Amino acid sequence: MNSIATTSATQAQQDIAEEFAFFGDWTERYQYLIDLGKQLPPFPEADKTEQYRVHGCQSMVWLVPSGDASKMHFEAISDSAIVSGLIALVLRVYSDRSAQEIVATEPQFIATIGLAKHLSPTRSNGLAAMLTKLKGYAAQALA
């Protein structure tokens, strides 16, 4: 697997699409999402604050930005196993990139792998809220 730093956001989305294409059905894809979520780095309890909470998610989600416009890093976690897997995908596409690339990158992988059709409306809304917050941090860094 490529290191995040060497791949573009576009390449990361293609890699995700290829990985999900290996799985025949959504039971396997959900299990893969849960496994990805379990691989997220430990998240500091001290950062589980209202300031970093993503609103619009049914489950609890926290997203912490760091870095500057040239390279932004994000850490995030959820109390839901599937949502943590979604976070892992989002971070692969958007973390450790320039704010410009973050703002310019549309999350095409969501449609490509069929997530849009297989997530509950509340999870879809939560994913949208997380992407909006992440892109908002990038837009602030550019301002």
Rank of each mutant, 00 (worst) to 15 (best):
V61I: 13
L115T: 01
W62E: 05
A141G: 00
L33H: 12
K38C: 10
T122C: 07
M60N: 14
L142M: 05
A21S: 14
L91P: 03
T49P: 11
Y52G: 06
G37E: 09
L127K: 04
A104D: 13
S120R: 08
A129Y: 09
P41H: 00
S80G: 15
G24Q: 09
K133F: 05
F23M: 03
S70K: 05
R123E: 03
A21C: 12
Y94I: 09
I77P: 06
E45F: 08
V83P: 12
L127S: 06
G136L: 04
E101H: 13
T105E: 06
L36Y: 08
A88D: 14
H73F: 07
A111E: 14
D47K: 15
S70T: 05
S80P: 12
D68I: 00
A81R: 15
R53N: 07
A141H: 00
A46R: 05
L119V: 08
P44N: 08
S95G: 11
Y30D: 11
Q58R: 13
I102Y: 00
F20E: 10
L36T: 14
R123N: 05
S78Y: 13
S98L: 03
K117H: 02
M130K: 02
G24C: 06
A69T: 02
D15V: 02
A141P: 00
S95Q: 09
S66D: 03
L127A: 03
G126S: 12
R92T: 03
A138R: 02
Q31P: 14
A111I: 11
R29N: 06
G136I: 04
Y137S: 01
R29C: 06
E19C: 12
